[in-house]
C-alpha cells in the first residue's frame, strides 16, 4: 500500500467556479522521494494546499488516502498531527510570536493530538539546538518573531528546521528552491536529505531541475493542466531541463 494515494482528484477554488485539478492520480510509497515538475499555472501549489486541507480549496471528485485513511474531511491540524507537513513556497510572517514559542507550541499541539506527552522546556531546547545547528540557524533568529524580517533563504531554512523538529511522516516541499542562492540551496538540501528515511516519504514540487541535483528523487512526474501527464525516473527531470515543458503542455 502506498503511503500517499491520490486517485482521480478534482479540486476547484472560488466555491467551485474555478477547477484547477482535473483527475490527478499519484501514489508515493513509503521511503521514496517523488518530484512533481510543471509549468506555472499547472496546479502544483493547489495540489499542496488540497493535500493539507486549506479552506477554499474544495475537492469535487476523487480521493486522497494517507496511510490507508481517507483524509478528505480532516482539518489542517488533524492532517498535521498525522504527519503531513508542507514547506511553504512563501512562508508566512507572524509578528509578535517568537519563533521558539511557535515551534514548541506546534510540536506540543501535535503530540497532544496524538495522545503523546508534551515535551518539557529543557528537552525542547536541547532538541531545537541540535536541529538548528544542522541548518546554521542561530538562537538569535529563533527568538525573533516567526519569519519577520527574514531573508528568503532564512525563511526556507526555518521551514526545514520546523520539519526537523516536528519529524513529519510525509513532507511536501513547495518550490523550496525559489529565492535561494546556491549556498542556501545546499544548506536547505542537506536539511531535507537528513530527513530521508525508510519510514518517510516526500513530494518535491519544483519548476526547475536545479533542486533535484541536491535532493535526488526516486521518481519524477510532470504535471500540466491539473493532471499528471508523464512519469519516469530522474532522467525525466534532465529531459525537461533541456527541452522544456512544451510538448507536455500541448499533450494536456
Amino acid at each position: 500500500m502506498p503511503m500517499l494515494e491520490i486517485s482521480n482528484l478534482h479540486a476547484s477554488v472560488d466555491n467551485g467556479a474555478k477547477p484547477i485539478l482535473k483527475g490527478l492520480d499519484l501514489s508515493v510509497p513509503k521511503g521514496e522521494v517523488h518530484a512533481i515538475m510543471g509549468p506555472n499555472g499547472s496546479g502544483k501549489s493547489t495540489l499542496s494546499y488540497v493535500l493539507t486541507g486549506r479552506d477554499g480549496y474544495d475537492v469535487t471528485e476523487g480521493k486522497v488516502s494517507f496511510e490507508g485513511e481517507d483524509i478528505g474531511d480532516l482539518e489542517p491540524e488533524e492532517r498535521a498531527a498525522r504527519g503531513l507537513y508542507l514547506s511553504f513556497q512563501y512562508p508566512v510572517e507572524i509578528p509578535g510570536v517568537p519563533t521558539l514559542t511557535f515551534i514548541r507550541e506546534s510540536l506540543n499541539a501535535q503530540r497532544k493530538a496524538r495522545g503523546e506527552e508534551e515535551v518539557s522546556a529543557p528537552d525542547f531546547m536541547r532538541l531545537i539546538r541540535e536541529k538548528a545547528a544542522i541548518l546554521n540557524v542561530s538562537m538569535d533568529m529563533l527568538k525573533r518573531p516567526v519569519n519577520v524580517g527574514f531573508s528568503g533563504g532564512e525563511k526556507k531554512r526555518m521551514e526545514i528546521l520546523q520539519a526537523l523538529v516536528l519529524e513529519p511522516r510525509f513532507l511536501i516541499l513547495d518550490e523550496t528552491d525559489s529565492g535561494l542562492d546556491i549556498d542556501a540551496l545546499k544548506v536547505v538540501s542537506e536539511g531535507v536529505n537528513a530527513l530521508r528515511s525508510p519510514d518517510r516519504a516526500m513530494l518535491v514540487i519544483t519548476h526547475y531541475q536545479r533542486l533535484l541535483d541536491y535532493i535526488a528523487p526516486d521518481k519524477v512526474h510532470v504535471m500540466s493542466a491539473g493532471r499528471i501527464v508523464a512519469s519516469g525516473g530522474p532522467e525525466l527531470a534532465k529531459e525537461l531541463e533541456a527541452e522544456g515543458y512544451d510538448k507536455y503542455v500541448r499533450a494536456a
Binding site: 498535521a80 508542507l86 509578535g96
Partner: peptide, 25 residues
C-alpha cells in the same frame, strides 16, 4: 487567513491559532 492556515498546518488547533494571532496583534 494565510497566517491562520500556516499555523494550523503546523498542528495548532484553529481556536488556539486564532487566539495567538489576536493576542500578538
Amino acid at each position: 487567513e494565510t497566517a491562520l492556515f500556516y499555523m494550523r498546518q503546523r498542528g495548532l488547533p484553529e481556536a488556539q491559532a486564532r487566539a495567538i494571532l489576536i493576542r500578538s496583534f
